[in-house]
Design a protein around this nucleic acid. Structure first.
Lengths: 188, 188
DNA sequence: TACCATGCGGAGAGAGTCTCCGGTCCGCTA
DNA sequence: TAGCGGACCGGAGACTCTCTCCGCATGGTA
């Protein structure tokens, strides 16, 4: 927005390379992946990495914003394809799968669902929350979702379900199971 | 069990000191607390720390086994004091509170609920799972819990709920809310 | 072509982990 | 209660990772 001057060509190149490598590294080693190693694999000095991304968090966010935005878009797709209740369930499922598969994304999605302090993340957290709101209100209207659940509560519960499923080994079946329990409740 | 020879007095003293300090440090700084710092605060060299506890994990486990065992004992207390359904709910609540309050315990409880590779943890994980089983079967018999929930699933869900509540700020109210949603289900 | 701000890279300080081994001191025996 | 052997100690130091700093290279512009 306030990007007055465009990045120099070499800078832009390095920036992109870092993002690509970082996404791989975080997916592989989790969010603790070595930053110097990422720099090395991207063929740049560590100074360059830290200039573009002052903190580990900044890099993590930048590497995954597009996926986070992807979740938001996916919500609207599902809303078009399925009846509200199913769309919501399916979206939560995909959210959980994504959270587990891409190891570095766990925390990130968690934060996107909290009052963030990062502009970048806040922006796309807002998109995700917006998507959740649309799905939730449609499902409510249909009568398939209880009236008093806040969208953000649902997102946090999904995050929790992903955590639970991860303890199981993180397969899609575990996620489905825990989502079912959550949906239907535990009562006898 | 195969501890033929008792520890020498000074060794035992150091061991105990390390445990005390470690529990404090982990509670305060999370499981990433500096080990050398723990050694220093306990007044021993880092060599001593690593001799007693070869890995961070070993120390973390040793520092919290008693609390984990405490959870198991607490289950039986609650079973005596309250009707089965309530006892279960209350236990899960306390489990979540403990998980959040003692920062280092999060992962630990998670692992206690998975097929562990540590003898120490497996032992007390078994206690916790046993306690969960007793509460679950009582609640089932009473008819307040659906018949197809495995105790271990419940433990993992509780872990997830703690995660969700932590995103909220981790207050007791959040935990209660999420447990309620889980218990009653999300249906409209 | 020449200029210079933008951007680069990697040396190095700082913090943490973990090992190794010379030295200490506990606890047993006479 | 002195003396011995081995269990146990402590901290120096090698290694890894993070992050900063600054002399140097280079893309964009005139």
């Amino acid at each position: 927005m306030t990007q007055v001057r465009p990045m120099r060509a070499d800078a832009r190149r390095n920036y992109e390379r870092l993002l690509t490598v970082a996404a791989e590294a975080f997916a592989e080693h989790g969010e603790g992946a070595s930053l110097d190693d990422i720099a090395k694999r991207a063929g740049v000095g560590s100074g360059t990495l830290y200039r573009h991304f002052p903190t580990r968090r900044a890099l993590l966010e930048a590497a995954y914003v597009d996926r986070l935005e992807g979740f938001a878009r996916r919500a609207d797709e599902l809303a078009r394809e399925l009846p509200p209740g199913q769309a919501l369930t399916e979206w939560l499922y995909e959210l959980c799968v994504g959270t587990i598969q891409v190891r570095g994304m766990r925390t990130l999605l968690g934060c996107a669902v909290t009052d963030g302090d990062s502009t970048l993340l806040t922006a796309c957290g807002t998109q995700v929350r917006g998507a959740a709101e649309r799905l939730v209100s449609a499902a409510r209207e249909e009568g398939s979702l209880r009236g008093d659940v806040e969208p953000v509560e649902l997102l946090r519960l999904a995050h929790g379900v992903a955590g639970a499923a991860e303890l199981d080994g993180g397969g899609g079946e575990s996620i489905r199971r825990y989502l079912t329990l959550l949906t239907e409740g535990l009562r006898g």
